[in-house]
Each structure stands twice: as structure tokens, then as C-alpha cells.
């Protein structure tokens, strides 16, 4: 286990550096001169221009820029945007908002998704099973931004239960966006849980448990469910990536000033430091989540061994 962990962490480092380098290269070859754009219509004195170019390391070769940047990141310095505000300050403001949205969405996914999956899986083929299968397929098929507008129109405008947009009403205003954000993954989790449960309920150890005289609740809830959670946990980690993309769309629809909107605005304004900073941070989170899941396997399934 210890050796496995070390190897996984060592693998994580080049992957993280590689992915961030890819993003860095892509963003910094955005055509256009951000320093000139800063000056607007008026011409900028050559000395100021040179000073700014040097300050942002734009005169150095790309690999050196990357190295200076990434070593700064590990010291918590994400650089400044072109108006002199530290990117970490912007992130500090925006991340809690998106985190709240994502935690709620994750909660919806896990609780409703797994519950629906269990309900469908324990009695394969009955009407509840078919209901779950059909409704999840419909949710998966509707693109998230169509679903977002539908929810906004129905539950925000036609039947004004939830606020239409913005975050003025605290946690309550996050509910609808979070449900929309989590909906597709919720459907996947329900289907995954169901499929795993159906397959595992046929396993020998389940028959043994049943013939030992254990209650149905214990057989399904403890013995089967634990092994059925493996594909779900894997999915949750991969899903974090989709959640980030979804957050950009959901935050646009519901006008939530989170990190997704910040990336989007950064791209529109050609603010490389903002885009690279946030995307680097998100990739980091994403990779950490995948690392945690790999370790969680061992806890969930004793059959998985590490050499």
C-alpha cells in the first residue's frame, strides 16, 4: 500500500506539470498584444512598455516563463492580472461561490443518484426500475444549458419557487443551479449504481449471506452496496471535470459570479494570467480527486491488491 501510494504520487507530478504546461502554451500563444491593449487608444511610452513587458516576463522564452510561473504557483503566487490585482485574490473571492455550488450539486448527485439506483436495482424490471431508467436517459440526453433554461423558466418564472438568477438569497439561491449542474451526473450515478447492484446481487457471496439468514436490508445495504460503489466512486472523480465545465455554463445561465464565469471573462478579455491561474488550479483539484479515488479503491474493495 505504501509503495503503491508513493508510485501514484510520483506519477501525479509529471502529469500535473505536463497538463499545466499544455494550458500555459495554449494561452500564451493567444494572438494579440495584451500590453498594448492595456494602453487603449493612446500610445504608450516605450519605457513603460518595456518595463511592463519585463514585469510580466513576456520578454523571456516560453519555457522560462512557464518555469517562473509554476514555481510561483507552488508558493501561492498566481501572478497578477493586467490591472495589477493578484489573481489569487480574485480566486479567493470566486472559489467559495463555486465551491458552494459544487458541494450542493455533489450532494444531490450522491444522495438522489444512489437512492434512485438502489430503488431500481433491487427489483430489476419492475415499474420503478423502468421509471428510473427512462427518466435518467432523458436527463442525460438534454444538454445542460437547455435543462438550465427549462428549470429557470419553469421553477423560476412560471412557478416562482426559486430565485431566477443571482445569489442574493444565500444558500437558497444555489439550490436550483446546483440541481441543474448535478442532474446529468445524478442520472449517470443512478444508472451505474443500478447496473452494479444488479450484477452483484447475482454473486455467490450474496447467496451465502442470504442463506446465513441475514436480513435483506443487511445483504443489500452492507454486503452488496459496498462492492457496488466502486464504479460510482470512480465516476465521481472523473465527474469533477464535467462539473467544472458545467459550472461555467450554469454560472452563465443563473448569473452566479463563480470561478467558471471568471475563466470565461478572462478568456474574453485576453487575461492570460487569470485563465492560466484558474485552469491550473482546477486541473490540480481534478488530479488530486483522481488520486484520492485510486486510494479509496483499497478501502472499498479488499479484492484489489497493490503490488
Amino acid at each position: 500500500m505504501g509503495r503503491y501510494l508513493t508510485r501514484r504520487v510520483l506519477q501525479f507530478i509529471p502529469v500535473f506539470l505536463g497538463a499545466t504546461l499544455l494550458i500555459f502554451i495554449m494561452v500564451w500563444i493567444i494572438p494579440g498584444d495584451p500590453i498594448r491593449a492595456l494602453a487603449g487608444d493612446r500610445a504608450m511610452p516605450e519605457s513603460v512598455r518595456a518595463a511592463l513587458t519585463e514585469e510580466y516576463n513576456l520578454d523571456k522564452p516560453a519555457w522560462q516563463q512557464y518555469w517562473l510561473y509554476i514555481s510561483g504557483v507552488f508558493q501561492g503566487d498566481f501572478g497578477t492580472d493586467f490591472r495589477g490585482r493578484p489573481v489569487s485574490e480574485l480566486m479567493g473571492q470566486r472559489i467559495p461561490i463555486t465551491a458552494r455550488l459544487a458541494i450542493l450539486a455533489f450532494g444531490f448527485e450522491v444522495i438522489i443518484g444512489i437512492a434512485a439506483g438502489i430503488v431500481a436495482g433491487v427489483r430489476k424490471g419492475n415499474y420503478l426500475d423502468n421509471l428510473v431508467l427512462t427518466s435518467t436517459l432523458v436527463v442525460i440526453a438534454i444538454p445542460i444549458f437547455v435543462l438550465g433554461f427549462l428549470a429557470q423558466l419553469l421553477l423560476g418564472v412560471q412557478f416562482p419557487i426559486f430565485p431566477v438568477a443571482g445569489i442574493r438569497e444565500g444558500w437558497f439561491s444555489y439550490l436550483l443551479p446546483a440541481l441543474v449542474l448535478g442532474s446529468v451526473s445524478l442520472a449517470y450515478i443512478a444508472r451505474l449504481t443500478r447496473a452494479a447492484l444488479v450484477e452483484n446481487l447475482r454473486a455467490d457471496y450474496v447467496r451465502t449471506a442470504t442463506s446465513k439468514g441475514l436480513s435483506r436490508l443487511r445483504v443489500v445495504g452492507v454486503h452488496t452496496l459496498r462492492n457496488s460503489m466502486i464504479p460510482v466512486v470512480t465516476f465521481l472523480a472523473i465527474d469533477l471535470g464535467a462539473l467544472m465545465g458545467g459550472a461555467i455554463i450554469t454560472e452563465t445561465i443563473f448569473n452566479i459570479p463563480g470561478i467558471g464565469r471568471a475563466v470565461f471573462e478572462g478568456v474574453q478579455r485576453q487575461e492570460g494570467t487569470v485563465v492560466v491561474g484558474i485552469v491550473t488550479f482546477l486541473v490540480f483539484i481534478y488530479l488530486i480527486a483522481n488520486l484520492v479515488v485510486d486510494v479509496l479503491y483499497a478501502v472499498l474493495d479488499p479484492r484489489i491488491r497493490y503490488e
Partner: peptide, 16 residues
């Protein structure tokens, strides 16, 4: 490395 870049996020960055 490529897998670590979420599709919509990466799409926005590259397409810009």
C-alpha cells in the same frame, strides 16, 4: 496529461 484537461474548460481556452 490531456485527460487532465476537462473538455469544456479546455475548449474555451483553446477556441479563444
Amino acid at each position: 496529461m490531456w485527460f487532465a484537461i476537462p473538455t469544456i474548460l479546455g475548449g474555451i481556452v483553446i477556441l479563444a
